[in-house]
Each structure stands twice: as C-alpha cells, then as structure tokens.
Design a protein around this nucleic acid. Structure first.
Length: 273
DNA sequence: CCTTATGCCTGAATGC
DNA sequence: TGCATTCAGGCATAAG
C-alpha cells in the first residue's frame, strides 16, 4: 500500500514523463474517483492545462498545473498512477485517463479507495487533511526533539501514534512496524513512556527505513507499482511486516502477530521492549 | 484525550 | 470443486 516511499517513487518515476505536458483530454470512467467537483467540472478545470511539476506531502501526491490548480492524489490501498508513452486501452479498474499531447496517465485502483481532488493551488492548505499533517520525516524539520514533543503526553500505543498522519506524515502499517522493530520498541508501549534516548533511536529508525524504502523503490508486497508499472524491492528487506511466525532475524524466536489499534501488527516479543 | 466500529471496495486466501 | 467467509487496510466519521 503506498506509503511515503512508494508515493515518492511514483513522484520520481512520473515527473520526467509528464512535467511540461498538457492535458488535452480527460476520460472519467468512474466519477467516484474524483473529489470536490462534478466530473464535467473537473474535466473543464484540467483540460488544456500544463503540468508544471509534481510534489509530495506525506502520502499525498501534488500535481501542480500551470493555471493555478493542483491535483491532489491519494492512492490509499491499491491506487496506481501508470504512465504510457503510447495510447493504451484502459485496463480493468482504470477510473480516470489523462491524455497528453504526448503519452497518457491512467489512474487505476482495484479497491476504489483512492481519490483525486482538484483545488486552486493557493487554497491547498484549506484542505483539512493536508493542513493537519505532521512534519515530513525526511526533511530537516523532523528532529528527535520534534518527535519527542509530538509524542509527549500521548497515552496511545506508539504504533497508533506513528500511524496518525497528524503526528508524522507518511508512515503506514509496513514502515511503522519496520521502524519499531529497528528501534527495538514494543508497538504497545504508551507513546509518552518513551524516554529521550528511545525517541532518538526511533527517530533514526524512521528515517532509516523510509530512506531504505525509497532506495529500494518501494515495497511491492502485493499491488504496489511505480508510474512505469515496475515493482519495488523493499519487500525483500522487510524484517517483520508479513513475517508472522517466521524467526526473528535477530534472536531467531518466532515473530508474533497481533491486532493493535485495528491494524495487523507483527513484532518480536524478545527483542522489542 | 482515547478507543472501537463502520463504510468504502475487490480479490486472494481460507474454511467446510 | 464450489460456495461462503475472512482478511488485507488508509482514512473519515460516529459513537462511547
């Protein structure tokens, strides 16, 4: 499921193809994928506009259009943005097709959870879910001190806090479990119970797993593909996610699967305290 | 402040 | 084999 490293990889694999391209036509095959406007209005907004660049905030992809509009895309679980240099028939579950003066972009989502929103660029920050987002974990503003402050006083399990996009932007179930393993922290620990040293280690672990995820071009556990339709490789490096009952890479004892804050959670009860 | 439940979805995996 | 159930989960929202 696209988390920060996957969305960043989509951004990187897409920008070279579409920056400077003009959206000539929009084909809306399932209007439910579009938020904020009727599909005819959406079409009027984007047709004829040139893509200036693509940014990212947390798990949101921000596609900046020339005439002051931005497309905000969220893949949720199974959303994909697939670029084709040549015209390509829409595959099953393709909900929106952007056709450029050269090439086309397909928004495809089996589960139909993903959404694309069009908003005037200068009103982006009025979108509550974007406005509330916590710090970007790979930018300079994300320091151990900032993380400490953001977790202070929180009684919720550290895992629940890290999954909360308002605490830190971009972590999902995969990278949260991996970061907690790397930091040797039990996912059930109350967030406020972590001391400064533990927070410092956790901060380093978050940065490390996210950077490693990006370097591996994401985790293709099931559905994830980049804009070229390519899989990532980080699934091969996962230490705990998807490895319930397998031996811990550190101590050899079986990894435990439980349910925490409604999410499947895998961790090593021996190594993670 | 926190939790759990629900809805949104389809396909793969599992159960009988 | 086949039919039914469970599970995967990000996020908004509601309720306790």
């Amino acid at each position: 499921m696209p988390e920060l490293p996957e969305v960043e990889t989509i951004r990187r694999t897409l920008v070279g193809h579409v920056a400077g391209r003009t959206i000539e036509t929009l084909e809306v095959r399932w209007p439910g994928a579009l938020l904020g406007w009727q599909d005819s209005e959406f079409t009027d907004i984007v047709q004829g506009q040139m893509i200036e660049g693509i940014g990212r905030r947390g798990k949101y992809l921000l596609i900046a259009l020339k005439q002051g509009w931005t497309l905000i895309a969220h893949m949720r679980m199974t959303g994909k943005l697939l670029y084709y240099a040549q015209p390509e028939p829409a595959e099953k579950h393709t909900h929106v097709v952007f056709r450029f003066d050269q090439g086309e972009l397909h928004f495809n989502d089996v589960r139909k959870f993903g959404r694309i929103l069009a908003v005037p660029t200068d009103e982006q920050m009025l979108i509550p879910s974007l406005a509330r987002l916590g710090p970007e974990p790979l930018e300079a503003g994300f320091t151990p001190t900032v993380l400490y402050q953001r977790l202070a006083g929180k009684k919720r399990p550290i895992k629940a806090a890290l999954l909360d996009q308002d605490v830190v932007a971009g972590l999902g179930n995969i990278y949260t479990d991996e970061a907690l393993f790397l930091a040797r922290l039990n996912p059930s620990r109350a967030a406020q119970s972590l001391n400064e040293k533990e927070i410092q280690v956790l901060h380093g672990a978050i940065v490390t797993v996210l950077q490693a995820g990006i370097e591996a071009q994401g985790t293709s556990f099931r559905d994830y593909r980049d804009a070229n339709g390519e899989k990532g490789a980080f699934q091969e490096a996962l230490q705990v996610y998807g490895r319930a009952n397998e031996p811990c890479q550190v101590c050899g004892r079986p990894l435990t699967k439980s349910r925490l804050s409604g999410r499947t959670t895998v961790f090593c009860p021996e190594c993670q305290h």
